[in-house]
């Protein structure tokens, strides 16, 4: 199993570097020649309508999907040929919880901790469950938990191996205000610890408030990017609703 990397904002390069990344599924172009960087110690939010390519971009970054063209460098590792190291350096939480319904959160986390080579899986599982405020539900089957609680446990799963780069696909979806605040706390803790976070969001106001940098995806292309202080929610909303030719 690959060694778990330690987040370090002083390390050279970027947490994530995409160069000319394209991904096609049959005749559908999910990503088109995307160039994008995510810096250490910062949080990057991806905006885009459904089908814009946000999820595909995150899955490519997590080495879950191989790009059709272009190069992906995650935590200093070229994903082509170093997929194991990329996976060890990356924590990913997608739309699904990736949890087994008939196991408890504690059993799920112990299983994934062992797969990730985490020392003392039982202790680490208990620790992340405490971190996400799910220790009360640690020994209930996942199928009996609310969507919001499953989401918290799913994020706990992504944090188990202390990833340098955290990738979250619409982490706010299905969460109440308290849950959203929890996501903000987790995201900021990873970035402040020297790691990096890339997450996707639909709500420009919330996304910009939680991140340092932003990128807008339209039709699989980067339509805009920069620091969150350089734009407003209205500008992002206008960009998202503009006709495709204007992007």
């Amino acid at each position: 199993m690959a060694e778990n990397p330690t987040p370090d904002a002083t390390r050279p390069g970027h947490a994530l570097e995409l160069r000319g990344v394209s991904k096609t599924y049959g005749t559908t172009h999910a990503l088109r020649a995307v160039d994008l960087d995510a810096a250490w110690g910062r949080v990057l939010v991806l905006f885009g309508h459904n089908g814009a390519g946000k999820s595909t971009l995150l899955r490519v970054a997590a080495a879950l999907v191989k790009p059709t063209a272009g190069s992906v460098t995650t935590a200093g590792f070229d994903a082509d040929g170093n997929a194991g190291r990329v996976r060890a350096a990356t924590g990913y939480a997608g739309h699904g919880s990736l949890l087994y319904d008939d196991l408890t959160p504690e059993e799920n986390l112990r299983f994934y901790a062992r797969l990730h080579g985490v020392p003392d899986p039982k202790e680490r599982a208990a620790e992340v469950l405490r971190d996400v405020g799910a220790e009360r539900w640690a020994h209930r089957r996942v199928r009996g938990l609310s969507n919001g609680m499953q989401k918290r446990v799913a994020i706990a799963r992504a944090l188990l191996h202390r990833p340098a780069l955290l990738l979250l696909d619409e982490p706010d979806s299905g969460l109440d205000v308290q849950g959203q605040a929890f996501v903000d706390t987790v995201v900021r803790a990873v970035a402040d610890g020297g790691g990096a976070v890339v997450f996707s969001a639909h709500d420009p106001a919330r996304g910009l408030a939680s991140a340092d940098d932003f990128a807008v995806l339209r039709g699989g292309r980067i339509a805009a990017h920069g620091e969150t202080g350089s734009t407003t929610p209205d500008e992002i909303a206008a960009l998202l609703s503009a006709p495709a030719e204007a992007a």
Partner: peptide, 14 residues
């Protein structure tokens, strides 16, 4: 069907 295949694929194991 459980959506856990990605969880296995994300593991840094051979």
């Amino acid at each position: 069907e459980r959506g856990t295949l990605d969880g296995l694929r994300l593991a840094p194991v051979p």
